[in-house]
């Protein structure tokens, strides 16, 4: 696609999403909110999983860390709601990024499936600790104040919060992709040993990327906690969060910029609107969808589109 055209299209999409709450029903705003949250999470995962090829199966750990940082801040220091929201969100991002920086060096020495499972294990440990250590209150749950201003309905307020995060994440991803870091990550994804031999500082790049990815996910986790109002360890340490990030990226197209967003839009729409009537068969249909996706479109929808364009051009 031509660059100016792409910028116009993305601008139009953001504008459309910006005015959507004025027309849509509250339920559709909720679905939109879920889509934007999923898009932020998928973009956050994709910086590491898509650009660098390090597939994490435990990114929900960072959602949980962000949520608990915000929740515990509010619990221990009674800040005014709006200040608490902003401070909690920033703290959530910081705690996530800090924790990622702490574990980055050892876990990033692992590759492929071992890295994936190490992070899955890490997310399970954190989830169990949040659930069982009394100081974290994960079993009882944490309550957060209502921070939506009077002029806006809560779902609209959080819709815009997630929209802002999504636009920010997209900009960050776009910047990374076109920067030196992005080219380094692509080299790591294709062949890490060769990249290292050619002078790409692989360790540093991987650590920076994991920290950015975790920080972004932590921010989203904190805002998600506020949008819930009340959460327990079980509502933020969720394996399906980790999984959906992967699925959305895979559906859209790994390594592309818009892929995770397109994937999130499509899958959230399908599972929430189309499958709303089939609650008993929800897992079954999702499972069939996953299988079909991997077998029929291993490079995602954007991969299918590219192949189609190439065939037509020939």
């Amino acid at each position: 696609m031509k660059r100016p055209l792409a910028i116009v299209l993305i601008g139009a999409a953001i504008l459309l999403l910006g005015v959507l709450p004025f027309f849509a029903l509250p339920y559709h705003v909720r679905v939109g909110q879920l889509f934007l949250l999923s898009a932020v999470l998928a973009l956050g995962w994709h910086i590491l999983g898509g650009f660098a090829g390090y597939w994490s199966f435990g990114h929900t750990a960072f959602v949980g860390l962000g949520a608990f940082a915000a929740g515990l801040l509010n619990f221990h220091f009674k800040l005014p709601p709006m200040l608490g929201f902003v401070a909690g969100t920033l703290l959530g991002g910081l705690v996530s990024a800090g924790f990622a920086a702490l574990v980055a060096y050892p876990v990033l020495r692992l590759r492929g499936i071992y890295f994936a499972i190490a992070l899955l294990g890490m997310s399970q440990v954190l989830g169990e600790l949040a659930q069982n250590v009394d100081a974290f209150q994960g079993a009882l749950g944490l309550t957060l104040p209502d921070v939506a201003p009077d002029a806006l309905r809560p779902e609209v307020f959080f819709y815009y919060c997630f929209l802002a995060l999504a636009v920010g994440s997209f900009a960050l991803a776009a910047w990374i992709r076109s920067s030196k870091l992005g080219y380094g990550l692509a080299a790591i994804r294709e062949d890490e040993d060769t990249a290292r031999m050619l002078g790409v500082p692989t360790e540093r790049y991987k650590i920076i990327t994991l920290v950015l990815s975790a920080g972004l996910t932590g921010l989203a986790g904190a805002v998600y906690a506020y949008s819930l109002g009340y959460f327990t360890a079980g509502s933020v340490f969720r394996v399906d969060f980790s999984l959906n990030m992967i699925l959305h990226s895979l559906l859209g197209g790994i390594g592309t910029l818009t892929g995770p967003v397109i994937g999130a839009a499509l899958l959230v729409f399908v599972t929430n609107v189309l499958l709303g009537q089939l609650l008993d068969l929800h897992l079954l249909v999702t499972g069939v969808l996953v299988i079909a996706l991997v077998l029929l479109a291993p490079n995602g929808l954007l991969g299918v589109a590219r192949r189609w364009r190439e065939r037509k051009g020939r």
């Binding site: 499936i113 999984l243 992967i246 895979l250 897992l283 999702t286 991997v294 490079n299």
Partner: peptide, 24 residues
């Protein structure tokens, strides 16, 4: 066919999908 068509990580996703179907 998953292993043939794409990466081993993709076979991870296929088995996950099958697990969801069977659980249901």
């Amino acid at each position: 066919s998953a292993v043939d068509r794409s990466s081993l990580l993709a076979s991870l996703l296929v088995t996950f999908g099958v697990a969801l179907v069977l659980r249901n």
